[in-house]
Design a protein around this nucleic acid. Structure first.
Lengths: 228, 228
DNA sequence: CCAAAAGTGTTCACCGTACACCCATGA
DNA sequence: TCATGGGTGTACGGTGAACACTTTTGG
């Protein structure tokens, strides 16, 4: 028995629209990205960005947030539109316009990626050891990384990688991972504290055979401020 | 006699995709934007950004460049993707995703805007005296302006407003229009010359009852460099 | 008492800012 | 000779970069 398929008709051709999300976090001190292994053609078996088709009555931001939630279970994280990719043959099936986003999630958060229906697997990959990627997704990740690094020194975007409480050494470690260089401890602390954006919790962290570190929290955890 | 209309069908609904372009220039020392008066509903008779539907086999950048050329006759000008707007009811006809761009064209260039088929009129409007705009186009222009101003102090984007040759006073005037504040002449010249991005042509401009100004040209007229 | 990371100040070079007068030309 | 915009140098303060030792804890 054949079920008659519903179709949607237009007087001129329409492209498909998707959102794809570059999800960054820091795992064991290394910048990492969430990738899904494609279950279906095209590019079956290759790694790709999480993403999917826009529902016809869904806002773009909502679509990206939904894709992110489906893959990681996380809600309320930092999500920002990156760029829109629309080269004519970037997807062999049909014309696809991809509105891309990037998301930052706190380091070592219990983000347990779960494979969605159309993915064979989901996994974190270190940014400096990415596998070959489907479609134009390598280009997208490269652009996301450049944007992230650029925002480091005129915004407080790095705080989005921190859990509720953290130490200055942990924060410095995040900056060092992103910039891929060592920073001077005294200058770093001076600069961060002068921003007046974090406060001591009064507690301290004991994490080994050494002096405990003071614990801090962001004063405005849900906002990214532009500096200067 | 009825001509049978061709239609295009899809198994799930597709949004329409347009590009809209915020065209900036400087006219008589004032930042100005190109607007078209809509000939058809919706928002008939209101001012809107130039733009139109993406051809199914046309790259996004090409679509924006084509719209720009159709309205102004200009080719090869600076064009950069701005943001993608896709709120569900931003267009009452159907779901429309707008990939927006902004363009910068040299001041007082002979850009003779000509009304395209779907526009009743085309005109330059001073940025600080814009009329009410159709759709969400005011929001788009506001974002374009913020981006432009932000890029002023970490890139050489302002050179895109200059014709082939120009004087330092003209360049300073462009900065002052965009920043909406007066700048110190000596500091401005020192800063610009230290970038080593412009060269004297050897000629000078005589434009009144006063000392003629030295004429300069950009060393790399078609590139926007990031400073620092 | 030893190992390991936390915490702390000063010096210097460079850059952005403030500021006022002479120059070349046309009328 | 006068009106008009073109063209020039210096002094100061603030910010970013370089740099080494003491403190606190657990084992």
């Amino acid at each position: 028995m054949r079920i008659p398929k519903e179709t949607f008709s237009y007087p001129y051709p329409h492209p498909a629209v998707t959102t794809d999300v570059v999800v960054f976090t820091i795992i064991a001190g290394r910048l990492s990205t969430l990738l899904v292994r494609r279950a279906n053609p095209p590019h079956q078996g290759e790694w790709a960005l999480p993403g999917g088709f826009l529902d016809i009555d869904e806002d773009l931001d909502a679509c990206a947030a939904r894709e992110l939630a489906e893959e990681t279970g996380l809600r309320g994280v930092y999500l920002e539109q990156l760029y829109t990719f629309g080269a004519t043959h970037r997807d062999p099936r049909e014309r696809v316009i991809s509105v891309t986003y990037y998301a930052l999630i706190p380091q070592d958060s219990l983000a347990t990626p779960r494979a969605a229906s159309d993915a064979a697997a989901v996994a974190w990959h270190a940014f400096d050891a990415l596998p070959p990627l489907a479609f134009d997704h390598e280009q997208i990740i490269t652009m996301a990384h450049r944007r992230l690094v650029a925002k480091l020194d005129y915004s407080t975007i790095a705080f989005q990688f921190m859990p509720e409480t953290f130490t200055l050494s942990e924060l410095q470690c995040v900056y060092e991972s992103l910039l891929n260089q060592k920073l001077d401890k005294r200058n770093f602390r001076k600069r961060i504290l002068s921003l007046d954006l974090i406060a001591e919790t009064g507690r301290s962290r004991r994490t080994g055979n050494h002096r405990p570190a003071r614990e801090y929290r962001a004063k405005h955890p849900n906002t990214v401020e532009i500096i200067k």
